[in-house]
Write a protein that binds this DNA or RNA. Structure first.
Lengths: 249, 249
DNA sequence: CGCACCGTTAATGTATACATTAAATGATCC
DNA sequence: GGATCATTTAATGTATACATTAACGGTGCG
C-alpha cells in the first residue's frame, strides 16, 4: 500500500506514542492536571503495582480520603478505570479491583496477538527510519544484556519498551489505545509470573527476526514472526497459570 | 491499605453478546437505569443518528437541560463517550462530537479487519451449534432479500447483525467490546455513504463463504475469507470518501 | 490606529448537601 | 428455632452551591 500522506492530521483521539505506564489522557506538559486525572493516574498506579489488592472492595469515600479529594473526581476516575477493565463499580460495595482469571488472560492474549501482529505488518509495510530501527534494536540489546546480567526486571522493562515501540510506530491511534488497554489489564499477571516462568531466552531471536523483517520491508514475514511470538508467550503464560492452580490474580 | 473483602469470583467484564446499537453497560432487565446510563444511551443515540452534528460544540448545561438532569450525570456520560472516541471534551467549550476523517476511517478498518478476522478464526476453530449457523445464514438470507427488494436500510441492518453474530460467537468479551467501539465510531460514515457506494452484491458471496468455512471447521480459510471481505469494504469506503472530497463527517 | 493589559464573565471543576436505595439488623410470629 | 418482614442505616446517586479559570471585550497607552 502506498504510504501516501493523507489529507491532514487525524482530528481523532488523544495521541500517545510510546507511553510506558500510567498516562491516560491529557498531554499539557506544564499545566497542573485536573483532580480526576490525578486520581486516575494514582489509582491506576496503585492497581498496577498491586497496592490495591485484586478482589478488594474500596469505598469511594475511602479513596477520596486516600487521595485528599472529594468523591466527585474519584467517581470520574473510576468510570475511566471501569471502562478500561481494571475495576468494577458495584452499587453499594464500592469499587473492586478486578482479578484476572485464566480465561481473561486467554482473551487478552488472543486480541493482543492479533493487534500486535497487525502493528508488525503495518510497520514493515511503511518501513522505519534508521533511528527508529535503532531504537528497536537497542531495546533488544537491552533485553539481551539484562538476561546476561540476570536482571529480570530490566528485561521486562526493555521488553515492554520494544513492544511499545512497535505498536507506536504503527501510527494507528486506535490500535495503540487498544493494545495499551489489554497490556495494562494483564500487567499484574506478567509481573507476578516474571520469576516463575522459564527464562525468556527464545524471545530475543524472535525480536531480532521481527526487526529483520521490518528492515527488509517484508510485511507478511513480520506479521507471521510476531504473531508466533505473541502466541507462544500467551500460551506459555496460560499454561503457567493453570499449573499454579491459582484461579485469579 | 484499606483492604476489604476477599478474592472471590472472577467475573471478567460486562458481557454483551450481540447487542445491536446503544447499550454500554448494565444489564438489569427490570431495574430503572441510572441517570448517567440514560444520559449515555440518549447522547450516544443522538450522536449515531446525527441529531448532534459532528463538529458541533454543546455545553454541559445545555445537555443537562435537553435530558432533564443536572450536569453531574451528564459529565459521567461524557467521560464514557469520550473514552469511546465519540466526543471530545474541551475545557471551556463544552463537548464536541468528533468528526470522522478519512485517516480515522483507515485506522478503524485496519483494526476492525484484524479483529473480525480473528473472530472468524476463533469461531471456525470452536465450531458453532446448528442454531447459531442458522442464525448467521438467516442474516445472509435477509441481506439477499433486502438487496432484491432494493431496501438498503434493511440490508445494512442484516449486515450489521451478521457481523455482530460472528463477533459475539467468538465469546471473547474484550474482542467484542473493541469491535463495538470501532463499529460505533464509524457508524455515521457507513450510514451516510450507504446510498453513495456501489450496491453490496459481492458481500453476500463473501458471507456465504465465511459461513461455509465455519461449518467446515476450517479456521484459516475463515480467517482469510473474512479478512479479505473487511479489507475490501474498508478500501472501498476510504476510496469513496476520497472521491467525495469531504474531509470529515 | 493597534496592541497590550486588565477586569468581567461564562463555563467548568470541585465540594458538599440532600435523596434514594439496597443491605443489614432485629423483632415478631409461626 | 427459624424465617419473614419492617426498620434502620450506610453508601451511593444526584443536584446544587461555590471556586477557579480561561476567554472576551473594553480601555488606555504608545
Amino acid at each position: 500500500m502506498p504510504t501516501r500522506g493523507e489529507t491532514k492530521e487525524t482530528p481523532g483521539q488523544t495521541e500517545r506514542p510510546t507511553a510506558p505506564a500510567v498516562t491516560g489522557r491529557r498531554r499539557k506538559p506544564a499545566a497542573r492536571l485536573s483532580q480526576p486525572q490525578r486520581a486516575y493516574d494514582r489509582l491506576k498506579q496503585m492497581i498496577l503495582d498491586n497496592e490495591l489488592q485484586a478482589g478488594a472492595y474500596v469505598l469511594q469515600e475511602e479513596l477520596g480520603v486516600m487521595l485528599g479529594v472529594s468523591r466527585t473526581p474519584i467517581r470520574e476516575a473510576l468510570i475511566r478505570l471501569e471502562q478500561e477493565g481494571l475495576v468494577e463499580i458495584r452499587p453499594r460495595h464500592g469499587m473492586r479491583v478486578l482479578p484476572i482469571s485464566i480465561e481473561a488472560m486467554r482473551e487478552i492474549y488472543e486480541v493482543l496477538t492479533a493487534l500486535e501482529a497487525l502493528a508488525a505488518r503495518i510497520v514493515a509495510t511503511k518501513g522505519l527510519a534508521s533511528h527508529q530501527l535503532a531504537a528497536m534494536e537497542l531495546a533488544v540489546d537491552d533485553m539481551e544484556g539484562a538476561l546476561t546480567a540476570n536482571d529480570l526486571d530490566a528485561w521486562a522493562r526493555a521488553d515492554q519498551r520494544f513492544h511499545a515501540l512497535l505498536v507506536g510506530y504503527s501510527g494507528n491511534s486506535r490500535l495503540i489505545d487498544m493494545v495499551e488497554t489489554v497490556i495494562d489489564q494483564s500487567y499484574r499477571v506478567r509481573r507476578l509470573t516474571l520469576r516463575l516462568r522459564p527464562k525468556p531466552v527464545a524471545s530475543n531471536s524472535d525480536h531480532r527476526a521481527l526487526v529483520e523483517a521490518i528492515r527488509a520491508r517484508d510485511p507478511e514475514r513480520a506479521y507471521r514472526v510476531h504473531e508466533q511470538h505473541r502466541r507462544k508467550s500467551g500460551e506459555m503464560l496460560v499454561e503457567l497459570l493453570k499449573k499454579l492452580e491459582i484461579k485469579t490474580f
